[in-house]
Simulated scan of single mutants.
Amino acid sequence: MSAADPRARARDAARAIVELTGVERHDIALTLGSGWGRAGELIGETVARIPAERLPGFRAPAVAGHPGTLTSIRLHDGRHALVIGARTHLYEGHGVRAVVHGVRAAAAAGARVMVLTNGAGGLDPALAAGEAVLIEDHINLTAVSPLEGANFVDLTDLYSERLRSIARTAEPGLREGVYVQLPGPHYETPAEVRYLQRIGGQIVGMSTALEAIAAREAGMEVLGLSLVTNPAAGTGDGPLSHAEVLEAGRSAEARLGEMLSRIVPRLG
């Protein structure tokens, strides 16, 4: 394979992660979106923190609210988790390979479980801002896929029922919903929100679905969680703003971190 092959690039990143952390294998990986950043310091002991730009294929995040680092965490049972705080979004214009590079690097580093989190708009009026939602399925409306060529990957149980059951046991009352990914960076119009509701969406955002597909291709089990940061366009009282998303994330960080600290140790 050539150096341009995305899997080769992921293996290069995995080798650099081993070198810079001293950890031969990371068992679990977490991509922490808006509101989820505190989890890293609560799930175990920090072994190493790496600026994303030091790793092949990674770059500093372009979005406020993402720390721009990869962190190696030693869990209390001795396993290691890789926390990815450098998510690339499709709207940044770097292509789908860049969007899913973190997931592929985590798989190459040994992770068999991928936890994907995000901040999302609430399509379902029953979901309140600040509520965490377990992703049971998704609708990919980006019009792209991370898979290339005749690569037919089954997505029937993409968001693992086994992992969702573990999450529900650790956090009773956690509601589930269908996540819709759109390319962004603009928010949806009220007419688009009505359409998304009619096709079965409960939450909407600009990440996660493409990463989940790449994780399944890599043989990983996927757990997805969304923080409802705001009502979607036309369902709330005012205009949407990124500042509102960041504030909702800051307000929920401690609670979400504690929730993940109960869920992650049970994943295996």
Rank of each mutant, 00 (worst) to 15 (best):
L196Q: 08
Y179W: 09
E217T: 00
L196H: 09
V180C: 14
T189V: 10
G201W: 07
Y195D: 02
G200F: 03
A215Q: 08
Y179E: 04
R198Y: 05
V193A: 09
G184Y: 11
E188P: 14
E221G: 04
R194D: 02
T189D: 12
P190W: 02
E211Q: 15
A214V: 01
L182K: 12
I199Q: 11
V180R: 14
G205V: 00
M206P: 04
L210S: 04
I199C: 06
Q181D: 05
A214S: 12
M220T: 04
A209R: 07
S207C: 02
R194C: 01
I213M: 15
Y195L: 13
E217F: 05
G219T: 06
A214D: 06
E188M: 14
E188K: 14
V193Q: 12
V204L: 11
A191R: 13
G201I: 00
A215H: 07
E217L: 02
Y179L: 01
P190C: 07
G200L: 01
A215E: 02
S207N: 07
L182M: 10
R198F: 05
Y195R: 13
R216G: 03
A214L: 04
V193R: 07
A218L: 03
E211V: 05
T189M: 14
A218R: 00
E211F: 07
L182C: 12
Y195F: 14
P190L: 03
E217Y: 07
H186S: 15
R216S: 03
R198Q: 12
P183H: 12
T208N: 13
P185L: 00
T189F: 14
P183W: 04
A209P: 13
A191H: 12
Y187L: 09
P183D: 09
I213Q: 15
P185G: 05
Y195H: 13
Y187R: 02
E192P: 08
G205R: 01
I203P: 04
V193C: 14
M206D: 02
G205A: 09
E192S: 05
Q202T: 02
G184C: 10
E221V: 05
Y179H: 11
G200W: 06
P183Q: 10
I203H: 03
I203L: 09
P183A: 13
G219R: 01
E217I: 01
R198H: 14
E221P: 07
V204S: 14
Y195Q: 11
L196Y: 11
R216K: 15
R194F: 06
Q197C: 06
G205F: 00
E217D: 15
L182N: 11
L223M: 07
P183V: 04
V222Q: 12
I213A: 14
R194K: 15
A214H: 07
Y179R: 01
M206G: 03
P185D: 09
P185A: 08
Y195W: 11
T208F: 08
M220G: 06
Y187H: 15
G219H: 07
G184V: 03
I199D: 12
Q197E: 13
A218I: 01
V204F: 11
